[in-house]
Each structure stands twice: as structure tokens, then as C-alpha cells.
Simulated scan of single mutants.
Amino acid sequence: MKRVLPYPLLFLALWAMWLLLNQSVSPGQLIFGALIAFGACWAMAALGPEPARVRSPGAVIRLAGRVAVDVVRSNIAVGRIILGLAPPNRRSGFMTVPLDLTNHYGLTVLSIVLTATPGTLWMNYDSARRELLLHVLDLVDEEEWVRLIKDRYERLLIEIFE
């Protein structure tokens, strides 16, 4: 099976996503979605990614809970800023965060978490210096942001992937 379809779970996920996005299970959509998913699986096989190893499933659940809570909090905070309800001393800006995390999958998850959280945006990662350039909508205290990212996210990602 692996010779014909190198990533069967990826195939099923992409095929289901195609059908959901098109809101149709017509024969044409079924076939075209399967062809797209099949091609994407072979493109992924050509890239040859190293397998991800999750070392602590419990940490994955804790991270998901933290991200869910933080996304809700950030939505409220950004809404307050947009509506002019936040204190006037708030400013946006760029900051750097030194990271101990080196695993590619961990860095990818961190980038998704930070970009998906309203008010923050992953801008750049310097792998030589292991520094993250981050844009923050509500940048009052850089040290607080560094501590938040390292304590709430990076520590769990290191536990999960390294």
C-alpha cells in the first residue's frame, strides 16, 4: 500500500477537506479530489520529511488547552483595542524572542500558534542566532511577552518534540 499511496492518512485528510470545501460528493468531485490528494501525497513523498515523534501526548493536550484559552483572551484584548476601550499607553511593535527550541516540527507548531493568536504575528526566525522576530499589537512589556512565550508554549513544545 505504501508503494502506491505513501501517506494514506494525508490522502484521506486532503480528500475529505476537498469534499468539504466544495460541499459536494458528486462523482466528478470525488474523482478530482482523489487525484489532487494523490498528487499531494506523492509531492510530500518527494520532499521526504523526517517522521515526527511526539514524546508526550499529555503535553499535547495541555498545549491545545492553553492555545484555546489564549486565543479567546487575545480576541477579547484585540477587540478592546479596536473599539478604543484599552488604555492609551498601548503600542504595537516588533520584538525578538530567544528560543531554546530547535526541532523543526516544534518551531512549526509555535509559528502556527503565534500567528493564529490574534495580536501576534511570527515574522522571521534566525536559525543561526535562534531568535524569533515577532510583531505584537499590544507591546507594553517585552520581558512579559518573552516569559509568556517561553513558559506557556516553548517549554511544552520542547517536552513534546525534543
Rank of each mutant, 00 (worst) to 15 (best):
D100T: 12
V140E: 14
A116R: 10
R62D: 01
F11A: 04
L101Y: 04
H135C: 10
L20I: 09
A16Q: 08
I36L: 13
G28P: 00
A64Y: 00
A52P: 06
P8W: 00
F38T: 07
W122F: 13
R91W: 02
R53K: 14
S56F: 00
P57I: 14
R53N: 11
R130W: 01
I112W: 15
A45L: 02
I61T: 08
R80M: 15
G79N: 07
F161N: 08
I160E: 02
A52V: 12
R53S: 11
E50T: 14
V72D: 04
E144L: 12
G119S: 05
S26Y: 01
M44S: 11
I112L: 12
Y153V: 10
G39S: 11
V78T: 08
G84A: 07
R53V: 15
L63N: 02
I158N: 03
P51K: 06
L139R: 05
A68N: 02
Y125R: 11
G65I: 10
L101R: 05
L156E: 07
K2Q: 09
I82K: 06
V97I: 15
G119K: 03
R90Y: 10
I31C: 04
V69W: 12
G33V: 14
P8M: 01
P98G: 02
F94I: 11
R73G: 10
A77N: 07
V136W: 02
G28K: 14
T108R: 01
I160R: 04
P118Q: 03
V69Q: 06
R53P: 09
A16H: 00
G39A: 12
V25M: 13
V54F: 01
P57T: 15
R130K: 14
H135Y: 06
I81R: 13
L14E: 00
R66C: 05
G39H: 05
Y105L: 11
V71P: 05
E144Q: 15
E143V: 07
Y7N: 04
F32A: 13
N103K: 10
S92L: 08
H104P: 15
R130F: 07
L139I: 06
L101F: 06
N22Q: 10
V54L: 03
P87A: 12
Q23E: 13
F38E: 03
T96F: 05
S56E: 08
M123R: 10
L134G: 04
E154W: 07
N89C: 10
A37T: 03
F38P: 01
A86I: 04
L30M: 12
L12Q: 04
N22D: 09
L20T: 09
N103S: 14
M123I: 14
A64P: 01
P87M: 03
I81H: 11
H104Y: 06
R62L: 10
L21G: 09
P27E: 01
G48I: 07
I31Q: 05
S111G: 15
G79T: 04
A43N: 01
N89M: 09
A37C: 04
D141M: 08
V25C: 14
I158T: 11
W122Y: 09
H135Q: 15
G28A: 13
V140M: 12
T117N: 05
W18G: 00
L133K: 09
V25L: 14
R147S: 15
